[in-house]
Computed example of a mutant assay.
Amino acid sequence: MYTEKEITAMGYNPAPESYFTGRALLKTYVNPDERTNAYIGEVLFEAGTRTKWHTHESNQILLVREGICLYQEEGKPIQKIKAGDFVNVMPGIKHWHGASPDGIMIHTAIGLNTEKGLVNWMEPVSDEEYNQY
């Protein structure tokens, strides 16, 4: 676990609370603009933190840097994605991702073709859904 001082030194800022259950921190590398059609950022999820269910209008690629990423597509079992592995989320797939209850997880999120939109946020992942891993 990182200290607050270490987190600040690494350049993380609080992520919008309305998109997560638990505490997540964000470091943005690339914001989309008229020339760059992508978003690249890093998210640090504290233990047990997860996104709400959501979709993307284009691919989202998640590169797991540290910890275990719990990832679930609607109607499918939860997957455990290890550090060094990735998942390519296809457009329109309802899903969530987050840290295991045992430790932090850091992933780099890459959003492609951002002119189509970034994220369509939905309902929170219930504790019952989360605990099915």
Rank of each mutant, 00 (worst) to 15 (best):
N31M: 14
Y12A: 03
Y71E: 01
E129W: 09
D85P: 00
M90F: 06
G75K: 07
V125P: 01
T51L: 06
G111W: 00
T8W: 06
S18L: 11
E34G: 08
E4C: 15
Y71N: 02
E123A: 10
G92C: 00
S126K: 15
I68Q: 01
N131C: 14
F45Q: 01
H54D: 10
S100R: 09
I68A: 02
T108Q: 03
G103P: 13
T114V: 10
I106E: 04
A99V: 01
G111I: 01
T21D: 09
V30R: 15
D33N: 14
K76Y: 08
H54Y: 11
A38T: 07
H56L: 02
Q72I: 00
A9G: 08
I7N: 02
R23C: 05
M10H: 09
E4T: 15
M10I: 08
E128L: 14
I106F: 11
M122W: 07
Q72D: 02
H95S: 13
G67L: 01
A47L: 12
V43A: 09
D102W: 14
L26M: 05
Q60R: 02
T51Q: 05
T49N: 07
T36F: 15
H97P: 03
Y39G: 10
D33S: 11
G41T: 10
Q60P: 01
T28G: 00
E74D: 15
T21P: 05
E46G: 08
W121I: 09
M105I: 12
G117C: 05
E66Y: 11
N131P: 08
E66Q: 13
P91E: 13
T114H: 07
W121L: 11
V125I: 11
I61T: 11
G98R: 00
T28P: 00
T49Q: 07
E66A: 11
Y2I: 06
H97M: 06
E73V: 07
G98I: 01
N113G: 12
P91W: 12
E73W: 03
Y12L: 08
Y29K: 07
G41D: 10
T55A: 09
L44V: 07
Y71I: 02
L70T: 05
T108Y: 04
T114S: 10
G98A: 05
A24V: 06
H54T: 12
H95I: 14
N120W: 14
E73T: 05
H107Q: 11
V43T: 12
A15D: 08
M90R: 07
V64D: 00
F20E: 02
V89Y: 03
A24H: 01
I40Y: 05
P124C: 11
I93G: 01
N113M: 14
K76G: 08
R65V: 08
Q60C: 04
F20K: 03
G98T: 01
A9L: 07
I40R: 05
H95Q: 15
P77A: 06
N113V: 13
G103W: 11
I61E: 07
T8V: 09
T28Q: 00
G75E: 08
M105K: 04
M1C: 03
R65L: 10
G75I: 06
I68E: 02
W96F: 09
V89D: 02
N37L: 09
I61F: 11
V89Q: 04
G111S: 06
H56T: 00
Y19G: 04
I81R: 03
